[in-house]
Design a protein around this nucleic acid. Structure first.
Lengths: 218, 218
DNA sequence: ATTACTAAAATACGAGTAG
DNA sequence: TCTACTCGTATTTTAGTAA
């Protein structure tokens, strides 16, 4: 999904293409985008090829409208801007450090996850996770996280098995940047996984049973 | 302002670059954008050249932050998505048709305006305007329009004089697409100008003194 | 008037690599 | 390590133009 395709899609949406078929010439569309008629025509063809818009030719006049997929793409963009401008609300999560079963490290070694974390969080996490067990009123905060959108981590297939999707939230523990991971298809749990660019255990001198406080960005 | 520059700016903003200096390697930035380290590095240089971000090198670690101009660019993008998704509220404006002094046509012949209307409204307006005089509770609605953001029409210089900026709003009169124009540096007035792709007078069979109803998109 | 093809020019991209 | 240069290649853009 190239940036200029998103821009083209956005302009069609601004003409009302989310709700109804709208019509305009490729030359007009070009001047809206600041490109030539020829490029505008190609953009439309590309968007059709990618299933982002659909086109009707009715009585010599052609009309376009965004497809569901096209609207989805713009909704994701919109969500990005909301994250940027609409006061990233904070949430404090307290819990007790737990030993995992070492599976965290296994997951964090998967390229499919590593690549997504690097792209979506801006850093490649340390290969290993911390488990944080919450109780009492922190369970309610945990539920808030489950409801919230978070940063999507997509599922992928590797070595003949599926690795499930998840969502994550930027967080800070004692001023160290980290992230809370919540698997998408998980049962209710009082425990979340934490990842960070650093080995949080050694960096913060933590051991099992320690109580830690986390400030999570929604 | 190229679409991929906006995308790059957006990604920096998502890392927190609106409020504070954030640091990341060009390789990481590249994988966030889906481009190489070299291209990511170039994007950063381009954004600096265009005054959209500023960069500090502190203790071998470089940090970037959006400039005011950079934040402005993203705010405009965000506003576009708001228009798309946040239910374009309608406002009904009733008024009486008035003869202008023919100056409307003079303005609409200016390339500087024609080009902007074509780009921002999606059509090149008919060379001529209608004047609509409002009264009573419609004056309050007119004030709502003055407060609202609208679609910006920039001022420009041509033939040795300045042509002032304005804002406009998409509207429909008897199901015909048109737009309300509000000059930016104008005194209080009970009258607004209407433009359309069509000659509204002949198309709708209107004459001076007729009362018309307009549904305006905020 | 329109859309969209082809071919050439302009631009962006990334590999290699210096500093 | 890191950023960012050069340069060959790939992609995008536009002019010209057919339909």
């Amino acid at each position: 999904m190239k940036p200029y395709h998103i821009t083209a899609l956005k302009h069609i949406a601004m003409l009302g293409g989310v709700r109804e078929y709208v019509s305009f010439s490729s030359a007009t569309f070009g001047s809206m985008l600041g490109v030539s008629q020829q490029s505008a025509s190609k953009r439309l063809l590309d968007l059709i090829r990618d299933g982002l818009i659909s086109r009707n030719i009715v009585a010599r006049r052609e009309q376009v409208k965004l497809t569901t997929k096209g609207v989805e793409v713009l909704r994701r963009e919109f969500a990005d801007y909301k994250i940027i401008f609409e006061a990233a609300k904070e949430l404090t999560l307290t819990g007790v450090l737990m030993s995992g079963l070492g599976e965290g490290a296994f997951y964090m070694r998967q390229r499919g996850y590593k690549e997504q974390f690097a792209r979506k969080l801006g850093y490649e996490p340390y290969e290993g996770t911390l488990n944080l067990r919450c109780s009492g009123k922190d369970l309610a905060n945990l539920e808030v996280l489950r409801q919230a959108e978070g940063i999507q981590i997509d599922e992928f297939r590797s070595g003949g098995r599926m690795f499930g999707g998840a969502k994550c939230f930027r967080a800070k523990m004692a001023n160290v940047e980290c992230a809370v991971i919540i698997p998408l298809r998980s049962h209710y749990s009082d425990t979340v996984e934490l990842i960070s660019k650093f080995n949080l255990r050694t960096r913060l001198g933590l051991s099992d049973g320690d109580s830690v406080e986390l400030s999570v960005l929604l």
